[in-house]
């Protein structure tokens, strides 16, 4: 990795400049991560007095535990649902905004601010709208003949958390799709129009393929968001229920370790999550490298 051709001399100064960042990283990132790795190989007795080395037994138990497998599949549904919904809506809005000239900035402003709203707040907002007794949407749904209740129906609860998580993320996806659309050369689209391709045909055979890098990047970011940043959505609303229907992996680590005090299992879950983050980060960076080389 390069530096400047000319640098400052100094034996201790660079270390002193790096020290604050490195100390925080070591104490609050590396050491706890190491602890999680170590803990995941131990099992504590019922009173938390002694622990024994059990090797990979915690992992073996987890992967044989129906509750954990349920959490894995719940997370998959949640992540895919959130990503598809927020990216779909955002793409539609970006494509439409991109057709406009004068009112583009107005619409953009109106669409981007939910980025500022915390996932937990988004959760409370949608929880309120979907409230079975006083919410507006259940009232409308009832007129259509559907009795909404996210406290008893696992499908309703999943829809609720997906809506809350996706709603907040539309702004982010919208901005990146809009930037992607604006980098597509107008001449390509005009050439296709001269050849007689209509708007729909132009979108699917020119715009969408050229947006592929943006779409792929956003897919990774959205999956990371849905898996790790949505703790607040779950905790402030369903708390993993009803009957584990929205117990995503991140919430389960918290519930098992912090509330249930099952440290070995929670640490093993942390390690699995770390592996997932590392894999997703690697995918993301390889992609960015490729795009830079274009």
């Amino acid at each position: 990795m390069q530096t400047k051709r000319m640098t400052f001399p100094g034996r201790w100064l660079p270390y002193a400049l790096l020290a604050p960042q490195v100390i925080v990283t070591l104490i609050f990132f590396i050491w706890p991560a190491g602890q999680a790795l170590y803990q995941s190989l131990l099992r504590e007795d019922a009173f938390g007095l002694s622990s024994t080395f059990v090797g990979l037994d915690n992992f073996r138990r987890l992967l044989g535990d129906p509750l954990y497998l349920n959490s894995l599949s719940v997370t998959t549904v949640f992540a895919v649902g959130t990503t598809a919904l927020s990216m779909g809506v955002a793409l539609l809005l970006a494509v439409t905004v991109n057709r406009l000239l004068r009112s583009r900035n107005l619409y953009t402003t109106l669409l981007v601010w939910p980025y500022a709203i915390a996932p937990a707040i988004a959760g409370v907002l949608w929880w309120f709208i979907f409230h079975p007794t006083i919410g507006i949407l259940p009232y409308v749904l009832e007129m259509l003949g559907y009795r909404w209740n996210h406290r008893t129906s696992s499908v309703d609860a999943m829809i609720l958390v997906i809506f809350a998580a996706a709603w907040k993320q539309i702004a982010y996806n919208f901005l990146f799709f809009l930037a992607g659309l604006q980098s597509i050369p107008q001449s390509l689209i005009e050439a296709a129009a001269i050849d007689g391709a209509g708007p729909v045909k132009r979108f699917w055979s020119i715009v969408f393929p050229l947006l592929a890098p943006t779409t792929f990047f956003l897919m990774v970011v959205n999956v990371v968001y849905a898996m790790f940043d949505t703790f607040g959505v779950i905790h402030a609303t369903t708390q993993g229920g009803p009957a584990q229907a929205t117990n995503i992996l991140v919430y389960k680590v918290y519930a098992d370790g912090f509330v249930g005090m099952n440290l070995g299992s929670s640490a093993a879950q942390s390690v699995i999550l770390m592996i997932i983050v590392i894999a997703l980060t690697v995918v993301q960076f390889r992609f960015i490298e490729r795009r830079v080389n274009y």
């Binding site: 990283t25 990132f29 050491w31 602890q35 790790f228 912090f258 999550l273």
Partner: peptide, 19 residues
């Protein structure tokens, strides 16, 4: 420093709390 990207709070809840 780069590694911190891969270790969000959510995956190391209990040990970080302990520290």
């Amino acid at each position: 420093i780069f590694i911190t990207l891969m270790l969000p709070v959510e995956v190391r809840i209990i040990p970080t709390f302990r520290v």
